[in-house]
């Protein structure tokens, strides 16, 4: 096989490293952004995302549990366990949210972050006890440099979940208008919320296990899209997915050229760049509104 006159070594790099890396960037960027949007609609709060609702931390605890209980488990097995934990954690957060009387936009994600931190400390404590801080550490921050052929294919599993999300998009938006609105339109509110949470937990666990966490991505991208196109999820899904993929791609390239030949991890670039853009858009929107 001869691709554009590359040497066989270059071909190998392309197939084993470059293409997997690109694909995983695109899929992870898409997935995290879309599930962020779903979470914001279901929780009716613009600042709730897998990072700010304990989803990621719970998934991480799940990975640790898998590593301790089933040291030889396959990736699929690890994902399943992480998924169960992520689902339980997110569910718990939604229950807490139900109980909170003070539904301030900023307060709720703070509660989510605290909840995430509690789960996180539990993870650290257990990892410390079992001398596994090192292994769990590699799942703390997103990193695409470890992505090679054979280590990212699991990400493909999130594509059917995203397709399912597309079919449920209108239901999520209606649920986002509140329980009574949803009942009036004949929807079973709880069922819709649960389906949404399953999608969120599933995709989060897969991304966490393959590339690690991409903090705040699921918060930044949906908010940007919402500012210029509103919150109609079905209309926005494609935009959100594409913008998310593009954003992670740009962050990855920046991370690789800024301190070449070293690399800044994607988690850091996404966090810094994203929060900057987010702040800018937020201020601009306020200026426009007043």
């Amino acid at each position: 096989m001869d691709i554009g006159g590359l040497t066989s070594q270059q071909q190998e790099i392309l197939l084993v490293s470059r293409i997997p890396r690109l694909l995983s960037i695109l899929i992870a960027g898409m997935s995290m952004s879309v599930i962020g949007f779903i979470m914001q609609q279901l929780s009716r709060n613009k600042f709730v995302s897998p990072t700010t609702a304990g989803t990621m931390d719970s998934a991480r605890l799940g990975i640790l549990a898998a590593l301790i209980l089933f040291p030889t488990a396959s990736m699929l097995m690890k994902v399943s366990i992480a998924f169960v934990f992520a689902l339980a954690g997110t569910f718990l957060f939604m229950k807490i949210l139900d109980r909170i009387k003070f539904k301030d936009t900023i307060f709720i994600p703070l509660v989510g972050l605290m909840f995430g931190n509690i789960v996180g400390s539990l993870t650290t404590f257990i990892a410390y006890r079992f001398d596994m801080i090192q292994s769990i550490g590699s799942w703390l921050q997103g990193d695409f440099s470890m992505i090679v052929k054979g280590r990212y294919e699991l990400l493909y599993l999130s594509i059917p979940a995203l397709i399912l999300a597309y079919f449920y998009a209108n239901r999520f938006t209606i649920a986002g208008m509140g329980k009574d609105f949803a009942s009036n339109l004949g929807l079973q509110y709880k069922q819709i919320v649960n389906i949404g949470l399953v999608i969120v937990a599933f995709v989060s666990s897969i991304v966490l296990l393959t590339v690690g966490s991409l903090p705040f991505l699921g918060l930044i991208i949906p908010n940007i899209v919402s500012i210029y196109q509103g919150d109609h999820l079905q209309k926005n899904l494609l935009h959100t997915a594409l913008l998310g993929a593009l954003f992670v791609l740009v962050c990855d390239i920046l991370g690789r050229v800024l301190i070449f030949p070293y690399e800044i991890s994607i988690g850091l670039t996404v966090g810094v760049l994203g929060s900057g853009i987010f702040l800018f858009l937020l201020l601009r929107r306020n200026a426009y509104a007043s």
């Binding site: 609609q41 009716r44 009574d180 009036n184 919402s226």
Partner: peptide, 13 residues
């Protein structure tokens, strides 16, 4: 049914 007060935070047209 349309309720007495409705709080929708979503930006939709």
């Amino acid at each position: 049914i349309l309720k007495q007060s409705n709080h929708i935070d979503l930006r939709i047209q």
